[in-house]
Amino acid sequence: MLLESSQWSPLPEAVDGWDPGTDLHVGRRVRVDPERFRQETGLELADVALAVSWTSSTTQMTEAAPPVRFDAGGTAVADTTLVGDRLSGVLSLRSTVSLVRPPVERAVAVAAVPGSVLAEQVQRVVLENVSSMFPVHEIDFAHTWLSPTASWHLETSVDLTAPFYGTFRVLINKRDSELSSAVSRGAKDKRQQALLDELQAGVAALLLELALHLHAELAERDDWPLDSVGDVLSRTVAASPLSIVVPPSPAELATVRTQISGAVRNLGRGRIFQ
């Protein structure tokens, strides 16, 4: 559960409008049937505890709340604050029922090593993703090697094992004040939403083109680390109805660009037909 404005609600798949550095207050309530637990595990409730931990895909920081013991009725509640400065990208929250002390009487097929996980649930929560245009930074392109008349630039990486949300970010040219205003937090008018849609579509199209150029490298394995560059690019291509998997020849360029445009819309990016 997520605590917002003094109200608890189910933790969503994505936290809309999350500002970098903002703490998250979450809670996890677990209930087990004490008698069935004893029968199926050979353990007592006093032998186990609820543990909640979390990992940020961008910072690669992993933290955990103090373990919580179950009461006699089989209920345990973990209530903790996730420090915003250590969060970004995609957050993986892991809840486990784990052994905290060895059983008094050991038996065959009964967990005996402290730390053994009897039950596990992992929930992924998007804080910054393609929909929110990755981490966004505003700079004056005139002070960089980037064209001062370009509106935006996507920083990328061809290191397929690198964390995606730690290496990909959108740079907005401060000279395009209209786009800078549109990407700021808050309600959008139609014009600002159109600018965001255009930016979103452009970034998504660039990801697909990058994946096409890295096709051979991406095909070398199917077990890229979660939220790595290889993982995100592979999933992006897999979700896209492209009939090609390699960079186009000059004669095919226009057709491929049209395919990519359609694939971007099928991914839910950019302006959607009304």
Rank of each mutant, 00 (worst) to 15 (best):
residue 4 E to Y: 01
residue 19 D to A: 10
residue 21 G to I: 01
residue 22 T to F: 01
residue 26 V to Y: 02
residue 29 R to Q: 14
residue 37 F to W: 08
residue 37 F to H: 07
residue 41 T to P: 06
residue 45 L to R: 05
residue 46 A to R: 14
residue 47 D to H: 03
residue 52 V to N: 01
residue 55 T to A: 13
residue 55 T to I: 11
residue 58 T to R: 12
residue 61 M to C: 12
residue 62 T to G: 05
residue 65 A to G: 02
residue 67 P to N: 06
residue 67 P to C: 05
residue 69 R to L: 14
residue 71 D to E: 09
residue 75 T to G: 07
residue 77 V to P: 00
residue 79 D to H: 12
residue 79 D to I: 08
residue 80 T to E: 11
residue 83 V to Y: 12
residue 90 V to G: 04
residue 94 R to F: 06
residue 96 T to I: 04
residue 97 V to P: 04
residue 97 V to T: 10
residue 97 V to G: 06
residue 98 S to C: 07
residue 98 S to W: 02
residue 99 L to S: 02
residue 102 P to K: 08
residue 105 E to F: 06
residue 106 R to K: 07
residue 114 P to G: 00
residue 115 G to W: 00
residue 118 L to T: 02
residue 141 F to T: 04
residue 145 W to R: 15
residue 145 W to M: 11
residue 146 L to V: 05
residue 157 S to L: 01
residue 159 D to S: 03
residue 159 D to T: 00
residue 161 T to N: 12
residue 163 P to T: 04
residue 164 F to Y: 15
residue 165 Y to T: 10
residue 171 L to F: 10
residue 172 I to G: 05
residue 176 D to M: 04
residue 179 L to C: 05
residue 181 S to R: 15
residue 183 V to E: 03
residue 187 A to S: 10
residue 194 A to P: 14
residue 195 L to K: 13
residue 198 E to G: 13
residue 204 A to V: 13
residue 210 L to H: 15
residue 212 L to P: 00
residue 212 L to M: 09
residue 214 L to Q: 11
residue 215 H to M: 05
residue 215 H to E: 14
residue 218 L to A: 06
residue 221 R to W: 14
residue 224 W to F: 13
residue 229 V to G: 09
residue 232 V to R: 12
residue 234 S to E: 07
residue 238 A to K: 07
residue 238 A to S: 09
residue 239 A to K: 13
residue 241 P to K: 01
residue 242 L to W: 08
residue 244 I to G: 05
residue 244 I to V: 12
residue 245 V to W: 15
residue 245 V to Q: 14
residue 249 S to L: 07
residue 251 A to R: 15
residue 252 E to F: 04
residue 252 E to H: 09
residue 253 L to T: 11
residue 254 A to G: 05
residue 255 T to G: 15
residue 255 T to S: 12
residue 255 T to Y: 10
residue 257 R to L: 15
residue 259 Q to R: 04
residue 262 G to C: 09
residue 263 A to H: 03
residue 264 V to E: 02
residue 266 N to D: 10
residue 270 G to D: 00
residue 271 R to A: 15
